[in-house]
Design a protein around this nucleic acid. Sequence first.
DNA 1: CTGTTAGCGCATTCAC
DNA 2: GTGAATGCGCTAACAG
Lengths: 352, 352
Amino acid sequence: MAKQVKIKEIAQMAGVSAGTVDRILHNRGKVSDKSREAVEKVLADVGYKYNIHLSAMSFRKEINIYICIPVASAGEYWDSVKNGIMHALEEYYDIDIKPHYYFYDQYDAYSCQNTYKKLASGKPDAVIIGSTFTEETKQLCEHLDNNSIPYIFVDSIVEDTNPYETYTTDQYICGYLLAKLLDAATPADKSIAIFRFQRIGNQGAINSQERKRGFDAYMNETGKSDRVIEATLPASDIQQTESTLLEFLKNNPDVKGMAVLNSRGSILANTIYAHKLHDIKVISFDLTNNNRRCLENGTITTLLCQKPELQGFNAIKSTINRILYNMPVKQVHHLMPIDIIFKENLPLYKEV
Amino acid sequence: MAKQVKIKEIAQMAGVSAGTVDRILHNRGKVSDKSREAVEKVLADVGYKYNIHLSAMSFRKEINIYICIPVASAGEYWDSVKNGIMHALEEYYDIDIKPHYYFYDQYDAYSCQNTYKKLASGKPDAVIIGSTFTEETKQLCEHLDNNSIPYIFVDSIVEDTNPYETYTTDQYICGYLLAKLLDAATPADKSIAIFRFQRIGNQGAINSQERKRGFDAYMNETGKSDRVIEATLPASDIQQTESTLLEFLKNNPDVKGMAVLNSRGSILANTIYAHKLHDIKVISFDLTNNNRRCLENGTITTLLCQKPELQGFNAIKSTINRILYNMPVKQVHHLMPIDIIFKENLPLYKEV
DNA sequence: CTGTTAGCGCATTCAC
DNA sequence: GTGAATGCGCTAACAG
């Protein structure tokens, strides 16, 4: 453990004053080439890292972080992301961060556009984006790029943008794992259904598509593609989803495993439970309150989760470091581990 | 988000000076009942929380944390715990923490005794204990209790002690899950072997015993106890382990699933691989380098992991809060989630 | 017992 | 361009 070097010591070593070192560390103000060289040489030698908390305190300016994600009720997916964010804000309570929440309706492109418009009129130090609508997000990012406002993605990545970091997971692997687990849970002579939800013009689909690719890959590799039956359910209202599902199951009595590529597993699980179709296994995504309940009562077999809290937490943490250290842009894509949750280990997920 | 109240403001509100508030906050120095009452009333009103980083800086004393865990080579279980600890020390680099490492040989009670003896002669502010030998640890804790030195357990808990916090997981659930996963992975008409390692007088066994209970519970509940064959392997040297295992498998050709209740899965996996017994499924514990390799090449089917890094990390984090905030002792047992790792999601565990 | 003062490491401001 | 002075919130040491 090398002892922490202080800014003053560096100044001394380089034969300048602390002020000059500070200017160089933060790329602000003007410094002669001579001083810069001298300081940078010392810096390279000692591996200096300054105290981010003191730095923030002395900064005496608040950091404005805009957080733009879908609205969510308690216990839903995006609520977990938000919790992670708030958790991080508590952790860094000593740094003067001012969060500005911009919530939009993930089922309403219009709401998203409006929210983005409002956001674009502000002057954030950084933006955290949970994207749902691809085209709209691209435009927003273009605006942010033009104003050199850094932004970070959680949950999913939008192409042709330049986030300084992203927190997502590998959806292909998710889909592959789902297939593997469902295959093992379903009797070999029975069929597996995979459901697609009709949604309009949004990208929630992007994650699902990638999951579908992984799912198909497993089935192909293991030569079990003919076990699989694809079906489409309406996403609009639950009533219709239920009746369509029941109709489907009536026509395909062989189906004993159901793959749900988004977090709506509980809807299907509740339906089959209500109709006493107890031998059908369901695997779905995300530890929402509804899914949690289904896992508890056994109507959902397994859940795959992509650590939304951690994504939110890390997004804030990275952003603070990004802004305070004013680091050069080195874009990093962080992939979160996938939690595999059964009824048994569910109790261990009470605490975060 | 309530604005942070400063110590000076509190002092003003209570009609005393900052020094007095500080004395009350930290229970140090003497304060008149009158002042104390006034300040505490204000404190209760505003929910003050002081800046731990500034506090540590002004403290100008180093915090001595003793870390007493088994030695480990790179990539072994206890190495991960250590990594988590070092990771936390980096995270809190601005707080002057001086770690003192006391490593002992987890297979040698004598080494443990010696290490504990050395440790007991020091004056730590807090101790992090990864226990292996129950009796020795009990004695150590008694000594620490007598000197009111706080201590915290990682990985396992020793009875009749008073740690201020513990970081472990539910080993019963681990065993139950292992049984469930192995049951699903092994053809229904084949047998499952569960292995016990002979070790002398230590407690590493305690976690394993609890896992065994969970394993048995699953088998009983599902009426599959007669699928299970128990076996004992020598823990001393690998040569002997291998030959005993091969002998066992020769006598029990029906065994197609193997449960290993500790992290030694790779030893068995390598053996069956070398002898081309490719259809035997192995499930074991902990993401050690050896196990990781086996998961990659398919000789281990699944690993259950108890987040050793996070345990180490949180142990430090809690300890810092404990010491700096001088909180009242509220003992908390933290249960870590269990990671379930297959070949497919292994790549997501590169980063921590 | 209590108020005051100096100092921790850093960012800012203002003279030079 | 640069150095010195000042303040941030907190604790320790000292003087009363």
